[in-house]
Write a protein that binds this DNA or RNA. Structure first.
Lengths: 246, 246
DNA sequence: TGTAACCTGTGGTCAGACCACACAAGAAAG
DNA sequence: CTTTCTTGTGTGGTCTGACCACAGGTTACA
């Protein structure tokens, strides 16, 4: 069929993918041991390991040494880690511009809060509430604050129930985490900025609970682009087609 | 520092990432040969290869055998392939629900066409035009049609200039490509559906060129969710909180 | 001068070995 | 009989060494 002989590790990757699609493998299942997999597919164990490493980084499997039910390679399908690694490295390698990452956050988070605000069903925002309360209850260092900030934004995505958007947002966030942290040092007054950010968080949550979709979207928009404008890191302006990409 | 000794392949991954962040590596540069990398980092060559395999799948490097300037591992930073692999496998492993993928497409593509429509600068849509013309010029098989359909949607993302959204869309699209193809077989009349899809494409493009952001967003929304509703694959309803996720 | 043969460095792959680890089954002690 | 310890076994993690295919450059030859 194909004149090009597939590379050995690709054979393994394809076999696993086919097993997943055909239902022979499901989340929670164990992959065969590496040595068995190698023998079954007619490739070397190192090739199997290369494929498993890819699956691990992509968040499809988790590996553990030892023996027993918890050992071996297990299908987990946690997209967050893989998305983070991918976006972090692409930003590092200049495949992704930071400005584009911020703009994508605006799009995704804006539609998330708008959907949450206009959602008909019961929506659980207690997790977001708790994170906000934790942020406000005591003074935090910049790193602690940013960690909770990440959790807050992520909790909104999780409340929407969309796993794709949640994972993508987690990836985007982690990709520019270093920039956000570095930018905090450029601020004129960290206490002033953090106080403002907390107020904006409250405003976002209030708009969602009040069912004001447009207000929530605008609040998120101002929140995100405001911080990045203040830290001089990305010109995430509101609607203008930014020239930074080109 | 860390009581947990990092795994060997992660040492390599971290080293490459640090080199990227510090500017010691840039797109177009060669990575050191595997054997050199192994010796420099004090790990075995197989561990280096596992890391390089990850970087390759993630779209960060391209490898070639032989000698000369084109051989070896070269930084390329092409996010598309990695994003596609990640999303395809996550859908296969049920980490991503197809309904969520479709909903994310709605969000991203909706905001893309809205931004294109309201864009102040000159926007080049000739590529999208040409693809549409190619689709309309002759009868196509389902596979050919879907391939051009993918190209059309992707060309819009590329016109927006946002590399993150473009790559994400490419990944989402490829993740459900199999479902789209399988769904085409369930249609009552493929010629009728394809004709409708082409008309909708024209409508989207017209709305963009006319500067009607909301109309373009609605047209894209109807276009995408309509096809998936028709193929009974995903209940990508307009605004209702879908219960399919849980 | 042109061509052909050779050499070198690269990734691709495999085989084998050893280690650390976690669990299970059996043996030993109470 | 119960508890505790020892041993065995299977797993991933890693390294080493070897060989191959390939692409380019280099050299020798016509």
């Amino acid at each position: 069929m194909t004149a090009i002989p597939a590379r050995a590790w690709q054979v393994v990757l394809d076999a696993v993918e086919r097993d997943l699609l055909d239902g022979r493998l499901s989340p929670g299942d164990h992959l065969p041991p590496e040595r068995t997999l190698a023998a079954d597919l007619g490739v070397g164990r190192s090739s199997v390991r290369e494929a498993l490493r890819v699956l691990e980084v992509l968040g499809l499997i988790r590996t553990a040494v030892g023996s027993g039910p918890s050992a071996g390679a297990i299908i987990v399908a946690r997209p967050g880690g893989g998305m983070s690694a991918l976006m972090r490295l692409q930003v590092a390698a200049q495949g992704f511009a930071v400005a584009d990452v911020v703009k994508t956050r605006l799009v995704l988070e804006g539609s998330i809060v708008a959907e949450l605000a206009s959602g008909t069903g019961v929506i659980d925002l207690t997790a977001s509430e708790q994170i906000l309360t934790a942020m406000e209850s005591q003074p935090l260092t910049e790193a602690e604050f940013l960690a909770l900030d990440t959790q807050f934004h992520l909790s909104l995505a999780q409340a929407s129930g969309n796993q794709v958007i949640t994972a993508t947002m987690a990836g985007l966030r982690s990709a520019i985490e270093g920039y956000a942290r570095a930018g905090a040092a450029h601020l004129a007054s960290w206490p002033a900025t953090s106080a403002r950010l907390m107020l904006e968080h409250r405003g976002i949550l209030t708009a969602i609970l009040a069912g004001q979709a447009d207000a929530a979207r605008l609040a998120v928009h101002a929140h995100i682009s405001g911080y990045y404008a203040e830290t001089h890191l990305a010109s995430a302006s509101t609607t203008t087609a930014s020239p930074t990409t080109r």
